Amino acid sequence: MSDDSRLPRTLARRDALRLLGAAGAVVAAAPLARAQTAAPATAAPAPMNGNGFYRQRIGDMTVTVVSDGTAALAALLPTWGANPDRQAEFAATLAEYHVAAQNTVNHFNPVLIELDGKRILLDTGRGGANGQLVTNLRRAGIEPETVNAVFITHGHGDHIGGLTTAGKPTFANAQHIMGEAEFKFWTTQATPNDAVKNNLIALKDQFKLIQPGQEIVPGLTTVATPGHTLNHLSVLARSAGQGIMILGDAGGHFLLSLKHQGAYVSFDTNGDQAAQTRQQIFERIVSENLWVSGYHFPFHAIGHLRRLGAGSFEFEPTVWNWS
C-alpha cells in the first residue's frame, strides 16, 4: 500500500494544481454548454441604497432622494433659527436632540420621482465643482438624458445651479418647468446674479411656466408655499392612495422650524410669512398622513412628521432600507 505523504512536496503540489486546472476547465465549460438552452439573463438589480441616493417606494411611485453633497456650516445659529429673541430657546433644543450647533454641514437633496414611465427631477442642486447630483444620479443607474422633466421650486442658486453644465443643459431631453411668478421675479431683475443668468435666463426658451395648483405631470401638483421666496412652490405627488410632499425650502430646518412655531431662517425672504406657511404645510402633511422630504433635511431626508403639541412637530426619518 503506497503512502502519498512520502511524495516530494513539489510533485504533490504539481498534481494538485493539475487536478484543480482540470476541474476549472469543466466549470468554465459548463456555462458554454448551458448557453444553448438557458433563458435570457434577467436585468441587473437596481444599485443598493446608500451611495449618495436613497430609493423609497410610495404607491406606484419610486421616489429617489439624490444627494447633491454637503457644505461646511460653521454655526447653525442664527442662520437656521434666526429669531433674535429666541436664540437661547433654539440652542436648548439643539442640545436636547444632540444636534451640533457648530462645525456641522448643510445638506442639499434634490428628489427624482419615477411614475408612469416618466422621470421627474425636482430641483438640480448647486452645479459646478461642488455639485454631486449627476454623479449620484449615475450611481443610482440614472443618466441625465433619461430625465423627462425638471421642476424648480424657486430661484436660489443651490436649486438652479445644476440646470447647466459647461454652458449646456444638463438634462438635455427634459421639459424644464417653473412657477411663472417665481421665474419672472428672478429673470427680470436689473442685475441678476450669475446663477440666474447662467441657468434661468440662458434656458428661458426651454421653460414651461405654470401656476400654483397646476400639474407638473399627471400625479404631481404644485403647492403654493410662499415666504422662503414670495412665490415658492412645493410639490405634492400622489399615487395609489399614497402621497409625498416635496417641500423644497418650505420646510426650513428639520428640527427648529418644525418644533418651534414662528421660527424662521435668515435667508427667508419674509420670515413671518415663511413661518406661517410652514405651520400650514406641516399640519397638512400630518393630517393627510403624507410622506415628506425637505431639501436641507439631513440625508436620506425622507420620512414622516408627527405632532408634538399645538404648533409643534417632529421629523421622523424612515427606517433605512438597504435594497
Results as ranks from 00 to 15, higher is better:
152 I>L: 07
251 G>H: 06
203 L>R: 01
56 Q>E: 08
98 H>D: 15
285 I>F: 01
98 H>T: 14
241 G>W: 06
8 P>R: 10
130 N>F: 10
281 I>L: 10
11 L>G: 05
249 D>G: 05
33 A>H: 11
220 L>I: 06
247 L>P: 01
56 Q>R: 12
149 A>L: 05
36 Q>G: 14
125 G>P: 10
290 L>K: 03
280 Q>D: 09
203 L>S: 04
287 S>A: 12
288 E>S: 00
283 E>T: 12
155 G>H: 06
135 T>P: 12
208 K>W: 12
9 R>G: 07
120 I>E: 01
86 R>T: 01
313 F>K: 03
251 G>P: 07
36 Q>S: 12
242 Q>G: 12
65 V>T: 07
321 N>S: 04
144 P>I: 02
21 G>L: 11
124 T>P: 02
5 S>Q: 07
210 I>L: 03
236 L>G: 02
60 D>F: 03
113 I>N: 09
123 D>S: 01
43 A>M: 05
12 A>Y: 10
34 R>K: 14
84 P>M: 08
205 D>F: 13
46 A>R: 04
153 T>A: 10
167 G>I: 08
32 L>D: 13
40 P>C: 07
92 A>N: 09
313 F>R: 03
30 A>V: 14
10 T>F: 11
108 F>R: 03
166 A>T: 10
221 T>N: 06
40 P>A: 08
305 L>R: 00
172 A>L: 02
298 P>G: 00
185 F>H: 09
281 I>Q: 15
202 A>G: 07
213 G>F: 08
118 K>Y: 07
322 W>M: 14
282 F>K: 00
299 F>M: 05
4 D>I: 12
235 V>M: 11
83 N>H: 06
322 W>Q: 15
81 G>L: 00
40 P>T: 03
302 I>D: 01
146 T>K: 02
80 W>K: 00
99 V>Q: 04
209 L>F: 06
217 V>P: 03
174 A>S: 01
308 L>Q: 08
27 V>I: 11
87 Q>W: 04
32 L>F: 14
6 R>D: 13
27 V>R: 14
71 A>I: 13
227 G>L: 01
297 F>Y: 09
232 H>D: 02
59 G>K: 11
39 A>K: 10
75 A>K: 13
217 V>I: 05
255 L>G: 08
117 G>Q: 06
187 T>K: 02
279 Q>W: 05
245 M>I: 13
227 G>D: 02
211 Q>I: 13
258 L>P: 08
283 E>N: 07
255 L>P: 03
20 L>P: 08
15 D>T: 15
307 R>K: 04
255 L>M: 15
270 N>K: 12
6 R>K: 10
124 T>E: 04
267 F>E: 09
262 G>V: 08
271 G>V: 12
87 Q>H: 03
304 H>L: 02
225 T>S: 08
153 T>K: 12
202 A>D: 07
310 A>S: 14
279 Q>C: 12
